[in-house]
């Protein structure tokens, strides 16, 4: 009997009329834990159902339109897959969501991105805190030049979430969460560059999780990993919901189907189709989507 927190189920039902495939929270934390997480995230139950949403968002690099008028919401506690052929603007879109593009020369935007109902460019938004709330994992692992333990707690330190001995606790907790603890517990002080690529990526995931984000942006996080590591990461991502809202860019359509509840298909900068993953893959409404998911474009 799959367990879904009542409040969570309400929201999913209301938004989508269907509980998408892959919402198998049974493998996740137990009932009370989920409730704790959700309550901590939203004590009064007043937060918008969409953790983050793009409103009419258009993005340009030096007058070249990369993304045009995308409006899409990401329901809290779900995984949304972002698919589309190379160069269609997936990374550009994703990086805009935690303002990583703001300082890129030539970058311009129209429209808005709202996080919990508030524009991420609102003057009251603190950029550093925004990035704490909206974390990011990159295509290739990018450990910092410091020990494995310090990598995990780098963000925790920067945001002064914990200090001293607490850092060790945080490091262990997050390494356990990503399943890396047993592999590295005897060499926490070692260089992360001697870990395998997959282990490095897990380390980066642990690092991103350590600051307690609400939304996690993942840009092809498994593209440099072997199938077994990929499967581990996918399982881990599924276990992160419903505490977190995930947006997963992937070229691996199987991965999109296996992990996500919703899928959005971006093609030449336009949001061609967006809907429950199963529908999009099995009953695509748009001919371009059909072509892409059956492997004829991209």
């Amino acid at each position: 009997m799959p367990f879904i927190s009542p409040r969570y189920r309400d929201r999913v039902d209301r938004d989508d009329r269907t509980v998408g495939p892959g919402i198998e929270v049974t493998s996740g934390p137990g009932r009370s834990e989920v409730d704790l997480v959700l309550e901590a995230m939203d004590p009064d139950g007043v937060r918008p159902a969409e953790a983050i949403a793009a409103r009419n968002l258009s993005l340009c690099f030096a007058d070249k339109h990369i993304v045009s008028e995308v409006s899409v919401g990401f329901p809290r506690g779900t995984i949304t897959a972002l698919i589309g052929p190379t160069g269609c603007g997936k990374s550009t879109f994703l990086r805009t969501l935690n303002r990583m593009n703001d300082r890129v020369p030539g970058f311009a935007r129209q429209g808005d991105v709202v996080l919990d109902g508030e524009s991420i460019w609102a003057p009251s938004q603190d950029l550093l805190n925004l990035r704490r709330r909206v974390g990011m994992v990159f295509q290739r692992p990018n450990p910092f030049p410091m020990s494995i333990r310090d990598n995990v707690v780098a963000g925790v330190r920067a945001h002064r979430i914990a200090k001293g001995k607490q850092l060790d606790v945080v490091a262990e907790e997050r390494l356990r969460q990503v399943g890396l603890w047993d592999a590295v517990k005897d060499r926490l002080g070692d260089s992360p560059f001697r870990l395998s690529g997959g282990q490095q990526q897990l380390l980066c995931l642990a690092r991103a999780l350590a600051v307690g984000p609400e939304v996690l942006l993942l840009d092809e996080p498994t593209s440099s990993l072997d199938p077994i590591s990929t499967e581990l990461v996918e399982e881990l991502l599924r276990s992160l919901t419903p505490a977190l809202t995930l947006i997963l860019v992937t070229h691996n359509l199987g991965q999109a189907r296996r992990t996500s509840q919703h899928t959005m298909f971006l093609y030449q900068g336009r949001l061609v189709e967006h809907g429950p993953t199963q529908d999009l893959f099995e009953r695509p409404k748009d001919p371009d989507t059909l072509h892409y998911v059956t492997g004829r474009i991209g």
């Binding site: 990035r131 945001h159 991103a208």
Partner: peptide, 20 residues
């Protein structure tokens, strides 16, 4: 890439410089 990683984690420019 590692510098962007620091930035995306909410480090200030100064922290990125000093720590990465």
């Amino acid at each position: 890439l590692p510098k962007e990683g620091g930035e995306a984690l909410g480090m200030t420019d100064w922290e990125v410089s000093r720590r990465i």
